[in-house]
């Protein structure tokens, strides 16, 4: 137990150092830092056009009002911020590690390679617009729907943000992981971004089959739908159970694939 706690503490310290180092490195190029925020704002504006359309057409999806849709869009925007801050840059780096052989130096470190490779870089600028805008939309939507701010609601929503973060990790690193086998996986990455963007709207607008695939095969839709649905009391019990199991299943699956990828790297390359 003590050893376990000690290891966890050590990993947290190292993650803190990653964060500190990234922050210092990004401050070296302050102009780029601000421009990165600018780019993210323009993407945000593009996404907000959807909100404009929703309110201007007074769009109701089943029982979900425009305010309800805002809660979904807000969750999506916040998750985009989290993804772009914590994972995006790392997923770009993986194929570079493999191509240029930098992975060799990471492989000999006495620490989990998966931790080192997938969490080493944190971006501080790009998530800012998305996190702020997402937070504001969530608060507005939450208030307009008159959902009481209870401990249970906050906990449930927070829990599903955690689930969403794990799923974002597993799904969005998938194309990068394939670069251990194939040299160019940029195209697949592009497709995954497009699927990610499909979460911009509540899943209720999609057809039944698209929803089934999005929940049970590639669980993208769990990421932004289950949290809002739960606090709106629209999440079915079977969905709730699936929502709590799927991050574990995905993590285990991802771990197995990761190990395959690394052993392939060690065996097949010279």
């Amino acid at each position: 137990m003590y050893a376990w706690w000690h290891t966890l503490k050590n990993y947290l310290v190292i993650y803190w150092l990653f964060a500190k180092n990234c922050f210092m490195a990004q401050m070296e190029y302050r102009f780029n830092f601000y421009l990165g925020i600018g780019v993210e704002i323009s993407y945000l504006i593009a996404k907000l056009l959807y909100v404009v359309v929703v309110y201007k057409t007074d769009l109701h999806i089943g029982s979900i009002t425009p305010d309800g849709i805002l809660l979904f869009v807000g969750t999506f925007t916040l998750m985009t911020g989290i993804y772009s801050g914590l994972f995006f840059y790392n997923s770009l780096k993986i194929s570079e590690y493999v191509r240029e052989g930098t992975l060799d130096l990471l492989l000999v470190k006495p620490i989990s390679l998966q931790f080192l490779v997938t969490l080493r870089y944190i971006h501080f600028g790009t998530p800012i617009p998305n996190v702020i805008a997402g937070g504001v939309m969530i608060v507005i939507g939450w208030n307009a729907l008159e959902i009481p701010v209870t401990f249970f609601h906050l906990f449930a929503y927070g829990l599903f943000l955690g689930v969403a973060t794990i799923l974002a990790y597993c799904l969005m690193f998938l194309p990068a992981l394939l670069s251990f086998w194939f040299v160019n996986t940029g195209g697949l990455g592009m497709i995954f971004y497009s699927i990610w963007d499909a979460n911009n709207m509540p899943m209720a607008i999609y057809s039944k089959w698209a929803r089934r695939i999005g929940i049970y095969v590639l669980p993208f839709m769990v990421i932004t739908n289950f949290g809002p649905l739960l606090i709106m009391q629209e999440l079915r019990v079977d969905q709730l159970i699936w929502g709590l199991c799927v991050p574990i299943i995905m993590l285990v699956g991802f771990r197995m694939l990761w190990k395959r990828a690394i052993s392939n790297y060690s065996s097949a390359s010279g």
Partner: peptide, 25 residues
Amino acid sequence: MGQKSQLWWDLPAIESILLNKYIYQ
């Protein structure tokens, strides 16, 4: 490895060394 670096390019080397302190405990 003479041609590969473990040091963070944009930071003073002492930061990378400190990171190794924690990685190697």
